[in-house]
Amino acid sequence: PPDDERKKAEKAARSGNEEKAREILERLGYSEDEARELAKRLR
């Protein structure tokens, strides 16, 4: 489910793995720019 994926992205971002967070968010349908912004904010 998307919620689980989003949680994974948050966890990745918090542990400093912004790249992985961005990949997950892009898979969820965010654009590259949106995903980058979100990954930064989740950190």
Score class of each variant (00 low, 15 high):
36 R>L: 09
34 E>P: 00
30 Y>V: 02
43 R>F: 14
3 D>G: 11
36 R>N: 05
2 P>M: 14
42 L>K: 02
42 L>D: 02
40 K>S: 12
28 L>S: 01
4 D>W: 11
39 A>K: 00
24 I>L: 08
11 K>W: 15
39 A>H: 01
39 A>Y: 07
29 G>W: 00
37 E>W: 09
10 E>L: 12
19 E>K: 13
22 R>V: 13
13 A>E: 03
36 R>F: 07
24 I>N: 01
17 N>G: 04
19 E>M: 11
3 D>I: 10
23 E>F: 06
1 P>V: 13
19 E>V: 09
10 E>K: 08
23 E>Q: 11
37 E>V: 10
31 S>R: 05
5 E>P: 09
2 P>C: 12
5 E>S: 09
25 L>G: 00
23 E>H: 08
7 K>V: 11
43 R>Q: 10
42 L>P: 01
6 R>F: 15
34 E>G: 03
13 A>L: 06
18 E>W: 12
3 D>V: 09
30 Y>Q: 00
4 D>H: 11
39 A>L: 14
36 R>H: 05
7 K>Y: 10
41 R>E: 07
8 K>M: 13
43 R>N: 10
32 E>Y: 11
9 A>K: 02
25 L>R: 00
42 L>R: 01
42 L>I: 07
12 A>L: 14
26 E>T: 09
1 P>R: 14
2 P>D: 14
5 E>L: 15
38 L>Y: 08
3 D>C: 09
28 L>A: 07
33 D>A: 14
33 D>E: 13
4 D>I: 12
39 A>M: 07
16 G>T: 02
11 K>C: 10
28 L>Y: 03
43 R>M: 13
36 R>D: 04
35 A>S: 04
27 R>H: 08
12 A>T: 05
6 R>M: 15
4 D>A: 13
2 P>F: 15
37 E>H: 09
13 A>W: 07
25 L>P: 00
36 R>I: 10
7 K>A: 13
24 I>H: 05
29 G>N: 01
8 K>N: 11
12 A>I: 06
20 K>Q: 10
19 E>D: 11
2 P>E: 14
9 A>P: 03
17 N>P: 03
41 R>L: 14
33 D>N: 10
13 A>G: 04
35 A>Q: 03
25 L>V: 00
18 E>F: 11
38 L>M: 14
34 E>Y: 09
21 A>T: 03
12 A>M: 11
34 E>I: 06
22 R>M: 11
37 E>P: 00
17 N>V: 03
34 E>A: 10
1 P>Q: 14
28 L>E: 01
15 S>L: 12
4 D>M: 09
36 R>E: 06
12 A>E: 12
39 A>D: 01
43 R>G: 08
33 D>L: 13
29 G>A: 01
21 A>H: 02
13 A>M: 05
11 K>T: 13
30 Y>G: 00
21 A>W: 06
31 S>W: 02
5 E>M: 14
14 R>Q: 13
7 K>I: 14
